[in-house]
Structures are given as structure tokens and as C-alpha cells.
Computed example of a mutant assay.
Amino acid sequence: MIDPDDLARCHEMIRHGSLSFHAASRLLPARVRNPAMALYAFCRVADDAVDLQAEKAAAVLRLQERLERVYAGRPDNAAPDRAFAQVVESFDMPRALPEALLEGLAWDAMGRRYRTLSELHAYSARVASAVGAMMCVLMRVRDPDALARACDLGVAMQLTNIARDVGEDALEGRLYLPLDWLDRAGIDPEAFLRDPRPTRALRKMVRDLVLQANRLYYRAEAGIGALPLSCRPGIYAARHIYAGIGGAVLASGCDSISSRARTTRAQKLWLLGVSAFRAGVTTCMPRSAVLYARPLPEVGFLIDAAAVSSPVWQREDTLFEALNALAARQRAERASLNRGSLRAS
């Protein structure tokens, strides 16, 4: 399905760029692991294309063009694009899912902040749950309840990332903590970004994020039993490795500014073993009623998209709004540069 050379390039990108996913993917069967590598490599390219560029608006607009070419069957001459195009064709990947990721990246490029936890869930749905839903598609799972639990796992992982990276994000001028949490603590966002400190109030917010993630990890577990048996160890591994990062955050006193929590290689190997064991146990257990829990309202559009088998999707107005805003920003930046050049001459 995927050119072996392109697949090798994707494996190498993930091995260096996403250690947690690379570790968890070792427990997936090859029929899922290989397209998953292509998927994650394309997502990694998309994330880096925005995160590492000074002109973030232009980077997102270029990504939109690349995605258009993937779905037109004319991918760019790059291993992740070619491999992802094969995945789109072979698995009938609904376009709503990668475009949701693109919208989340557009929000990042706009420097968007989130007033409430619900708004943060909406962002997490786009940059993480969309990937979880795409993983379900790769496993040939389109059941709405299983998709809801996959989306829970995605939001949980993103909340864990945010809790771990508060200090690192602040150094880059990024802030993902809900603004109403900061308001209640009497913390001015701009003052915090100028001088981020692990105050008691800040550490409580980090702890609350980890606890929110842990609640969703518990809900997500109920969906693993609805996956193909051969896929369960890998998804358990992803769940346990990311939750392990949250545990490391708690062990640090929720100080995500002075240091960055991580799991060691030995811990990852232990968690892989635990995951393989738990996947075997689930075959003997009755299906949990939590599987049928109501999905987070912020992920409903992903479930609706992935539960059908057609890649045809009408974009929501919110994506158009984000892309139009970025295009307007790009034009304004260029006009400002041109005026500066004229004054200098």
C-alpha cells in the first residue's frame, strides 16, 4: 500500500519526533502500525510546519494547499504526503478529520486563547481527538461509542501535554490554561507570560488539568475493548504512557515551569508490559457500561464525520473563518513590510 522507502522515512520521523507514540506503536499489528506511522508523520510535519515557522499564517495556508493536493490524489513530492495520500485512498479517510487538525493549527497560528475548559476541550478535539478518530478509521472501527472513547483519549492526551508544557509554552508566548481559571486566581495572563513562576495557584491549575485528563483516561479505557483484539495492546500503551507523564507532573509537585516531566525508557518498557497484560485480560471481561457514556459535546462533529465511510465533507464555517483570518493577517503583514521598505528607501 505505502512505498517502503516512504514508510521508512515516516518511521524515522516518528522515532525522533514522538517517542511516546513510537513506543506505543510497537504493540500495534503491522496492518495498523504502518498506516499509523504515515498518519502521524503527516501530522508531525503539519505541526512542525506551523510551530517552527515565524510566518505561522502562511504556514497554515500552505498546509491547506498540501491537504487539498493529497485529497486530489496529487500529493507533494515528500514521503509523508505520498504516504498519507495512500492512507486516505485505502481507508476512505473522512476529510473532516485532517481538516479539524488543520483548524486547530490555525488557532495556534492566531495565538488563540481559551476562556473556559470547554473551549480548551474544543481545541484539544481538533489537535488530538481528530488523530484518535483517524486511528479508529485505520482499525476499521466506525462505531460511534468507540469513536467517542477514542476522542476522550485524545482530549486526555492533549490536556496532559498542556499540563506538562506550561513553562515551555510560556517562554514561547503561548498560554493554554483556561483564562477563567487565571481570573479566579487573580493572575494576569500577560504578567504571567513575562515572568512565569510555579506559584501555589499555578500548580493547582496544573493539578486540575492532570485530574481532568485522568478522568478521561478512565472513560477512554472502556472503548479499548471495542477495538480489534490485536490493536488493544498498542492503544493501552498510549493510554498508560501519556497518563504516566501526568503522574510525573503530579510527582514534581505540579511544577511544570522549573522542569519538564517525562517518563524514562525503563518506565515505558514497564508500561508496555502492563498494556500487553491488560489487553489480554479485557478478552475475559464483560463490556463496560462506560463505553456508552455521552461524548464530550466538543467532539461530536468528529464522531459524526468518522462514523460514515465517505471522505466527502462540507467544511464548517469555523474552518473558513480561521483560514480567512489567517489570510487577512498575512496580507496585513506583507503590507506592513512593504510600507517599511518604502520608508527605508
Score class of each variant (00 low, 15 high):
Gly280Tyr: 11
Leu296Trp: 02
Leu19Trp: 00
Asp145Thr: 04
Leu296Thr: 06
Ser345His: 07
Ile2Ala: 07
Arg149Asp: 10
Asp108Ala: 05
Val155Ile: 15
Arg331Ile: 11
Gly17Ser: 12
Pro29His: 09
Ile303Val: 04
Arg315Glu: 14
Phe320Asp: 14
Ala128Val: 03
Gln212Cys: 09
Asp152Asn: 14
Leu175Gln: 08
Cys254Phe: 00
Arg82Gly: 02
Ser124Asp: 02
Ser256Cys: 10
Gly247Ser: 01
Tyr242Ile: 08
Ala78Pro: 10
Leu319Thr: 14
Met1Ile: 06
Gln314Cys: 09
Ala109Gly: 05
Leu182Phe: 03
Ala293Tyr: 06
Gly104His: 00
Arg26Pro: 08
Arg184Tyr: 01
Arg287Pro: 02
Arg66Thr: 15
Arg82Asn: 05
Arg339Gln: 14
Arg219His: 02
Arg215Lys: 11
Arg239Asn: 12
Asp3Met: 07
Ser90Gln: 14
Pro297Tyr: 05
Lys204Gln: 14
Leu7Ile: 04
Val308Gly: 14
Ala148Pro: 09
Gly104Phe: 00
Glu333Pro: 00
Ala237Phe: 08
Met13Arg: 13
Tyr114Met: 02
Asp143Arg: 15
Arg149Met: 11
Gln267Asp: 12
Ser90Ala: 15
Leu326Pro: 03
Thr264Glu: 10
Leu117Met: 09
Lys204Met: 10
Ala213Asn: 00
Cys10Arg: 07
Val290Met: 05
Asn34Ile: 03
Leu39Phe: 11
Ser259Glu: 13
Pro144Ser: 10
Arg174Ile: 00
Gly244Trp: 05
Arg174Leu: 06
Ala146Pro: 03
Cys284Tyr: 14
Leu177Tyr: 08
Ser345Ala: 13
Ala266Cys: 00
Asp6Pro: 05
Arg115Asp: 06
Leu102Arg: 06
Arg329Gln: 15
Glu190Ala: 13
Glu172Tyr: 09
Asp92Lys: 13
Phe21Leu: 05
Glu103Gly: 05
Met135Arg: 01
Asp145Cys: 04
Leu159Ser: 04
Ala96Asn: 03
Ala222Phe: 02
Leu138Ala: 08
Asp143Gly: 12
Asp304Met: 09
Arg115Tyr: 04
Asp6Lys: 06
Leu193Arg: 12
Asp255Arg: 01
Pro98Arg: 11
Ala327Ser: 13
Ala163Arg: 03
Arg66Tyr: 15
Arg44Leu: 13
Ser288Phe: 05
Val131Thr: 09
Gly17Pro: 10
Ala54Met: 11
Val308Ala: 13
Leu179Ala: 00
Pro4Ile: 06
Arg184Asp: 12
Ser230Glu: 15
Leu271Gln: 15
Ala248Cys: 12
Leu216Tyr: 05
Val155Glu: 01
Tyr114Cys: 04
Arg26Ile: 05
Gln267Leu: 11
Val166Lys: 03
Leu102Ile: 00
Ala156Lys: 06
Gly104Glu: 07
Val249Tyr: 09
